[in-house]
Structures are given as structure tokens and as C-alpha cells.
Simulated scan of single mutants.
Amino acid sequence: MANTVDTAAAGRPAGGALRRVAGLDVLGWPAFEGLAVEAFVTARGGGVSVGAYESLNLSFSVGDDPGAVLENRRRVAAAIGADLGNFVFTRQVHGAGVRVASAEDRGSGAFAVDQQVPEADALVTTDSSVVLAILAADCVPVVLYDPVAHVLGCVHSGW
């Protein structure tokens, strides 16, 4: 899982395709331009992990140094102008579980793997203070947004 990437979304305007943000390469979706949401996938560069997890590994679950993962997550948060305490991570299980994330869930899984939202492969929110985060290595991240209802969903679409 050396190629773990992160998909996170926050309530900020979109910027488009591949771009460099605070030393990190992020890939956005042009479909979100002009909407009240930003969605992106991080590339591998710009982090502090070494060895098999080299550079921007964001997963506590693969055997990387937890301190390096935490620093990598801090770098992603800083790059998008968010507080890591607003991120919500879930324990992804290659299933069909969906969890609704609210302000009370902010920080879940952001600082330690044992604090994440219970098992799910999709996170949904209507709260613009919540930053949804989905991890993907050999799976596809899917981002859904309803601009009328202001509902954001991030899905770990795997296997």
C-alpha cells in the first residue's frame, strides 16, 4: 500500500485539474468548479514518510510511522487551509456502509486510527465545517455533491 492517496473534500470553491498547493500536488475535478465545495486527490509527493510508504502516506493502517502519517495529514490540512481537527476518517472495509458525518464527528480518526468513525466506505455530510476523507490505494475515490441540498458524499469504491 505504498501508493495510498487521500480524497478529502471541504466547503471551499474548486480549483480544477492537477495543481500545486503548498508543496503538494492535488488533482481536482473540473465538474466542481464554481460550486461551494472542493474535492481533490493528493499525489504522493510532499510528505515525510520513508521506505515503502515514501512521501505522502496518509494511512495509519499500513504500518507506516504514526508520527510521519500525522505530519503528512497536517500538511494536507494546511495546504487546503483546513484544521486537521475538522477531518473525518472512517474504518473502510470494502462494504456498502454509509455514515453521516456532522460537526460532532470532526476529528474522528484524524489523529489516531482507533478514533475513526465506525466501519463504512462512504461518508456523507451537509455540514460545511466537516472535511470528509477517504483513503484509496488500488480503489477508486468517488465524490458526489448535490448543489441544491448542499449534500457532499465521499466514497471508497473498491473491489
Rank of each mutant, 00 (worst) to 15 (best):
residue 20 R to L: 15
residue 51 G to V: 08
residue 14 A to E: 15
residue 44 R to C: 04
residue 35 L to W: 02
residue 50 V to S: 15
residue 48 V to F: 06
residue 26 V to A: 06
residue 32 F to K: 00
residue 52 A to E: 13
residue 20 R to P: 01
residue 31 A to C: 04
residue 42 T to S: 13
residue 32 F to E: 02
residue 37 V to G: 00
residue 35 L to M: 14
residue 33 E to S: 07
residue 11 G to A: 15
residue 11 G to T: 02
residue 28 G to W: 01
residue 51 G to R: 10
residue 41 V to P: 00
residue 27 L to W: 04
residue 47 G to C: 08
residue 36 A to C: 04
residue 36 A to V: 03
residue 42 T to W: 02
residue 26 V to N: 01
residue 52 A to V: 12
residue 41 V to G: 03
residue 30 P to F: 04
residue 23 G to D: 09
residue 24 L to I: 15
residue 13 P to R: 13
residue 44 R to P: 03
residue 32 F to P: 00
residue 42 T to K: 02
residue 29 W to D: 10
residue 33 E to V: 11
residue 23 G to H: 05
residue 33 E to H: 01
residue 23 G to F: 04
residue 23 G to C: 07
residue 52 A to Y: 11
residue 24 L to T: 10
residue 39 A to E: 03
residue 31 A to R: 12
residue 48 V to Y: 05
residue 41 V to S: 13
residue 52 A to T: 08
residue 29 W to Y: 12
residue 44 R to S: 11
residue 50 V to M: 09
residue 14 A to H: 05
residue 50 V to L: 13
residue 29 W to S: 09
residue 36 A to G: 12
residue 46 G to Y: 08
residue 25 D to M: 07
residue 21 V to I: 14
residue 31 A to F: 03
residue 38 E to F: 01
residue 28 G to N: 03
residue 39 A to Y: 02
residue 26 V to D: 01
residue 18 L to D: 10
residue 12 R to E: 06
residue 17 A to P: 04
residue 15 G to M: 10
residue 43 A to G: 13
residue 34 G to Q: 06
residue 23 G to Y: 06
residue 22 A to H: 12
residue 27 L to N: 03
residue 35 L to A: 07
residue 12 R to V: 09
residue 22 A to S: 13
residue 13 P to F: 09
residue 23 G to L: 06
residue 13 P to Y: 10
residue 22 A to N: 13
residue 38 E to R: 15
residue 36 A to W: 00
residue 44 R to F: 10
residue 14 A to M: 05
residue 43 A to F: 15
residue 25 D to E: 14
residue 28 G to Y: 01
residue 21 V to C: 05
residue 39 A to F: 07
residue 14 A to Q: 15
residue 40 F to V: 06
residue 19 R to V: 06
residue 43 A to S: 13
residue 49 S to W: 03
residue 38 E to T: 11
residue 20 R to F: 05
residue 34 G to R: 04
residue 14 A to T: 02
residue 15 G to F: 08
residue 38 E to V: 02
residue 37 V to K: 00
residue 25 D to F: 09
residue 19 R to A: 14
residue 24 L to M: 12
residue 32 F to I: 04
residue 52 A to F: 11
residue 26 V to R: 00
residue 32 F to D: 01
residue 20 R to G: 04
residue 48 V to I: 12
residue 32 F to V: 06
residue 13 P to M: 06
residue 26 V to G: 00
residue 34 G to D: 04
residue 18 L to Q: 10
residue 50 V to I: 12
residue 31 A to G: 07
residue 20 R to S: 14
residue 22 A to W: 01
residue 43 A to N: 09
residue 37 V to A: 02
